[in-house]
Design a protein around this nucleic acid. Sequence first.
DNA 1: TGCGCGCGTGAGAGCGCTCTCATGCGTTGG
DNA 2: CCAACGCATGAGAGCGCTCTCACGCGCGCA
Lengths: 346, 346
Amino acid sequence: MVVERNDRRPTLEAVAARAGVSRATVSRVVNGGAGVRPAVRERVARAVAELGYVPNSAARSLVTRRTGAVAVIIGEPEERVFSDPFFGRQLRGIGRELAAADTQLLLLLVESRADRPRIGRYLAAGHVDGALMFSLHHDDPLPSVAARAGLPVVYGGRPGWAGAADDPGVRYVDTDNRDGARQAVRHLRERGRRAIAVITGPPDQTSAADRLAGYRDALAPGAADPRLVADGRFTADGGEAAMDRLLDAAPELDAVFVCSDLMASGALRTLRERGRRVPEDVAVVGYDDLEPAAWTDPPLTTVRQDVTEMGRLMARMLLREVADPQDAGPAAVVTPATLVVRGSSG
Amino acid sequence: MVVERNDRRPTLEAVAARAGVSRATVSRVVNGGAGVRPAVRERVARAVAELGYVPNSAARSLVTRRTGAVAVIIGEPEERVFSDPFFGRQLRGIGRELAAADTQLLLLLVESRADRPRIGRYLAAGHVDGALMFSLHHDDPLPSVAARAGLPVVYGGRPGWAGAADDPGVRYVDTDNRDGARQAVRHLRERGRRAIAVITGPPDQTSAADRLAGYRDALAPGAADPRLVADGRFTADGGEAAMDRLLDAAPELDAVFVCSDLMASGALRTLRERGRRVPEDVAVVGYDDLEPAAWTDPPLTTVRQDVTEMGRLMARMLLREVADPQDAGPAAVVTPATLVVRGSSG
DNA sequence: TGCGCGCGTGAGAGCGCTCTCATGCGTTGG
DNA sequence: CCAACGCATGAGAGCGCTCTCACGCGCGCA
């Protein structure tokens, strides 16, 4: 026997019938109730409550062309997303800002290559009013899918593809990586260090490229030395290996600017193993100011970025564009970086 | 000057006109193309490609009553979600299973109390076909909101409210916490331990309650001793404090079963501080088998649960119910727990 | 040659909502 | 006392899609 499940949820029509008014009036009440006599509004509100009416989002967004939701897309495998406190803090900022605008945050994880088409379709199909994108490789197809669909997007960090920085249609929030790096290196120079090495991230990430540029900016004229540059791939192990290579190539180095705290933790390990004292023999400055940075021995001097605030800014930018695509507002916002001096730099 | 942005995306109508067929035929092609002559199908496909047509999800789900998306709801603040590898691994299992069914995973974070109504509305409004819920407090309103909306839900871990376990309408995937605890305690007894203490989690979480029950099951008859039970609240600090209390109350204890690895790390700290050797004086068994468990000194004997597999099972259960609400299938699945013996238990 | 059948296609209703516009009522001012 | 106005309400179109049903064509069979 097939049970006829009549679990159709109540419609506007049903509420209207119960309250003895028209659909239009119920709609008005549900959407704020302006221009409805208090007595009627009251009656409708009661009917809504009694039936447990909730507007059907599909029907509503079919006509309003709005969904009240925005997607956050992180192009990293779960293992990184769920172990790096960076994303958590950024999401907190985003979440708060969106909640204030009564907008639902949908987190979409892009793990494998195969996820892209599905997510692209999801975006293009109009499930969301906009998207925030992070950590996409420069050849990721999602930005162009979004652009073709006319979907507002704000990027976390300056996107890497050619021309992105100058395209006023590409909106992003970034921190001043270049200046942060400059501060770090200047600080090392002020402490009297002269042979300052750098451990960089993957050159195809703009944050890594910018930090390297800042390092070069702040170096003494003529102090640039290719032996003092090593790629640590933004991982702890990579940092460890890079430090090894640097010490082999340039044993005389007396400082190292490491472009992420994670890599710095690896570099510290190598320095300890090879008997270099920090900061006496080699001063170390990291980048990011993750919590564990303060736990290292000695505590890590590093560069802080206000990640939560960046999240807020991204959300605000997106909401503004969603509300009014005409009103452009700034295409990019760059937040300052601050040096946090601890023991590792002497 | 206001630019008339005609960025309306192409509709079925437009594709139909271009291909010289009716809307119905285009719809057929878009949805698989069964019963359409190859030549026509080809023509339509070309028109779709040329116009970059993507079906409007709102219109579609208005009639199909399907969205092709399911929500994952985690009732924890971001800081926990994004630092506990547990969720990441579970999400990987879920994500794989959903991707195979071409279903989009939406992660909804519930941080503050104020988020609930919005999320409740999101679920009730029909944005998703079903939901997976984790870590909800037993008084969380979301389950009842979902139930009222007729939304299929599968819980991660047996839900805690009264009667949940016996209600065939409540579906969940859990691990056999009770048996895992039994194995742990039995193992300690086999190693000759007699005064076996336990550090539990919050009693309102079913996993904590079940593990405590398993501990009691496996104890020697008459060996139950209230001095040997302490609540560590599932945190490292809580475990540290609980161990302190246990040693004060029952200095003769020769083993402790700690209901989570995190708490065990705290307990190990206390034992070291108070000069008890592990495992010679006090044997320790944890629970969860998080990665860091193997890093402790000595490496932690613990109980492993296949978290990724649990995620898969949850997703599969949900998809099955979404596909056919009649076909109930099992209301609950309990996966086995396995003891992993390392150095801390002697 | 005639009838019926099956298959490919189109016409059109309807999903649940919003929004415009018309309508009807009460109110005010001349 | 009537015209004019404003405000609350209702009627109805239409958002973009799916799906049922009817239609017409070509075929096989009697």
